[in-house]
């Protein structure tokens, strides 16, 4: 096992390096430089401009530029935004980061709390009414685009009934303490459900087929033959094994969750990383775009690494050699 973990980490390091090279290449492909937009100013002397470029190292060969870029990033300097008048990218991202994190965690919680019990139940009673309803929901959840679902949710629950706010994260900055927490959760309900919808459908299907698989295996038959109650079989033997692949699924679904967040945040006008990213795409604010790319890429690589390690810790049956 330790051998596998070490080997897995040894694969992770070159991947991380390749990721930074890819993001650097994307950044180089972007038109313009930090002075773009100021060149129209006729008082700027082209010679001074060239001197400035030279001073910033923009005329250096790519490997040198890459090294400098990496050095800055490791020191926490992600460059400055072009659109937000040179504010630091790190500052912009950290303002939004917490909001997206809460949204993601909230939606993941809903997803797991809803999908795992329902998935187990429909595997326990296959071809029951609830099982068919689950399958039906699975089809609907995967076919309805999250932005359309979000619009319907706003139309029904925010406009018609007025139960939930349709945008933002807080109603006013005056509320503090426990009231603020409730207010924030209240704002998270609609975007959280919208973001979690497709995931819920996926996890439900997955959980159902995993539990069905495990229930059909020999050791479950043995446990039943020993006279174990069916609940004991389900919770002590089946679930432990059926939940393991969910860990891998969570690793894979992370990227889907991030992609979904970009669109969901836009629907609900939610001030998170997704809306920041979209604004930056619209404004061609390349330093912000590339930093967000790098951030998500590192998250996904680390997430997959942790999922793999966790997987082999909890499932000692697997041999990796």
């Amino acid at each position: 096992m330790y051998k596998y973990i070490i080997r897995r980490i040894l694969v992770f390091i070159p991947m991380l390096f390749a990721l930074t090279v890819m993001v650097f290449a994307l950044a180089q492909a972007a038109p313009g430089d930090p002075f773009t937009g100021r060149m129209l100013d006729p008082t700027v002397n082209p010679e001074v401009y060239q001197q400035q470029r030279e001073a910033l190292g923009l005329n250096d060969p790519y490997p040198v530029q890459y090294m400098n870029w990496m050095k800055n990033i490791l020191q926490g300097d992600f460059g400055n935004s072009i659109y937000y008048n040179g504010r630091s990218v790190l500052e912009l991202i950290s303002q939004r980061f917490a909001n997206t994190l809460y949204l993601g965690l909230f939606s993941l919680t809903i997803t797991l709390v809803v999908s795992i019990p329902i998935g187990i139940y429909s595997a326990k009673k296959p071809y029951s009414i609830l099982d068919y309803a689950t399958t039906g929901f699975g089809f609907l959840g995967l076919a309805i685009p999250n932005f359309f679902f979000g619009l319907i949710a706003i139309y029904i629950f925010a406009i018609h009934f007025g139960w939930f706010p349709s945008q933002g994260t807080v109603s006013s900055n005056d509320v503090t303490g426990f009231a603020e927490l409730i207010d924030r959760l209240h704002h998270l309900v609609l975007p959280g459900i919208t973001l979690g919808l497709a995931g819920t459908a996926t996890y439900m299907r997955y959980m159902r087929s995993e539990v069905l698989d495990v229930l059909g295996s020999d050791y479950i038959r043995t446990a039943k033959a020993k006279g174990m109650s069916s609940n004991n079989v389900l919770y002590k033997h089946t679930l432990r094994n059926a939940l393991i692949p969910i860990i891998t699924l969570m690793g894979i679904e992370f990227g889907v969750l991030v992609s979904g967040a970009v669109i969901t945040e836009q629907v609900f006008n939610f001030p998170g990383l997704g809306t920041l990213f979209l604004q930056s795409i619209t404004n061609r604010d390349y330093p912000v775009i590339m930093s967000i790319n790098l951030l998500f890429g590192v998250f996904i690589l680390v997430g997959n690494l942790l999922a793999d390690i966790f997987y082999c810790v909890v499932d000692p049956r697997i041999r990796y050699d």
């Binding site: 991947m15 390749a18 038109p31 992370f254 990227g255 991030v258 970009v262 390349y286 890429g297 996904i300």
Partner: peptide, 22 residues
Amino acid sequence: MRFTDLVLALPFLVLALTIIAL
């Protein structure tokens, strides 16, 4: 396969939007 891993390291929509911005 390593190349697919690398492309998969970025969320699909984020990568697509980045290229659209370029």
